[in-house]
Design a protein around this nucleic acid. Structure first.
Lengths: 199, 199
DNA sequence: TGTACCGTACCGATCGGTCGGTACGCAATA
DNA sequence: TATTGCGTACCGACCGATCGGTACGGTACA
């Protein structure tokens, strides 16, 4: 990936995040990047490819990280914690990109839209599978796993509106806080009644 | 409010929800409503006022309902439950309007933007105050109330992407589910250590 | 001599919005 | 009852501006 293209994507993410995909014109982008029309279109195929690249990059990154975490973490509770931390850290580090994605990914068309939807589906399914595995092992509430997972994903996804990468609390602390709330809510009490732990 | 204006707002909500505020042109709206340019602008001041009206109506509605619930419900846990049910029911019943609001409210400008932000702030503060009151009474975790409330609001707000008004589960059931998860997560155990309940 | 990079000029389409003018119903007046 | 005046609803042409995108010539470096 050429360094110019990198710069253009950064600038596009900034503009799209501020004005929306349809609200930000290519004239603004020229100004922001410091290139004129011809040069701009030499590096990018068209406007939509910018939106696509922004979404795709983040989503593929998250799917990759999440897959690795799931592989390495047999315990479901711990797995959720690591998924949560990774997700929130990424949202905070790439707030602009996630803002663009959540607001405007459905402005994509054709294959590009389908690919992005596919990536979203794959990511969501990773969480779903971890939950399902917890249900199988008898440690998570079996009722409505899909809705439950959509709930915790909502907690994190909504955070792109207020999270700050260098905020007072670290992103890991916030992720843990949400994870604790969620886990306390869906964990079943240990089955053959062992002596009560502290917590 | 004239019936024509009502119709126009409905159609605008549908279009804006599908294509985004900037992505939906007035030509499409003419077609959808069945009125031509002149007639359209006879009823609406301008495009932005449509966006404003869509957001304002829903927000004022929710602030009104929430205020009343808080007045009538001294118990914080019960109050959260009623707030949650009312919120999710409204999101499901006006999914198009909420889609438009969440995606594009920041396309508003000047006083209209400020008014909408003010309404959002007021609604969020209602939840915050209920939480704070629970902390004062010693039944809720005192740590990071703001982040905790943003979490549960995230669970509900994100639902506009998948909720169905006539879905398999009723909206109340889903609201209760999330509320239970949240409350289990933030409720402190009853103070003078009573014998452990089943649950 | 080719190729990557960039600027200039320009395209047709569409953007949100305004214009003068018309059709029609209601109410007051003669 | 006939006439007049007026407000509401609507049409269709038109506005300047901006939209995303392209054609092409120049330049610098291989």
């Amino acid at each position: 990936m050429s360094p110019q293209r990198e710069r253009i994507l950064k600038a596009a993410a900034r503009l799209f995040a501020r004005d929306g995909y349809h609200g930000a014109g290519m004239a603004l982008l020229e100004q922001e990047v410091g290139l004129k029309r011809g040069a701009l279109y030499h590096h990018i195929g068209n406007k939509e490819s910018l939106l696509y690249e922004i979404s795709r990059t983040q989503l593929e990154h998250m799917v990759g990280i999440a897959s690795k975490i799931v592989e390495e973490t047999p315990d479901e509770a711990e797995c959720f914690r690591r998924l949560a931390r990774a997700l929130l850290r990424n949202i905070a580090d790439h707030r602009l990109e996630w803002t663009v994605h959540y607001r405007d990914f459905n402005a994509l068309t054709g294959e590009r839209l389908e690919h992005v939807l596919e990536l979203r589906r794959r990511y969501s399914e990773i969480w779903q599978r971890v939950y399902a595995s917890g249900v199988e092992r008898g440690i998570l509430q079996p009722a409505e796993p899909r809705v439950a997972v959509l709930g915790i994903l909502g907690m994190f996804n909504y955070s792109y509106l207020w999270i700050e990468a260098e905020g007072r609390l670290g992103t890991d602390r916030i992720a843990d806080l949400y994870c604790d709330i969620f886990l306390r809510g869906v964990l079943l009490p240990p089955h053959p009644a062992p002596p009560a732990a502290e917590e």
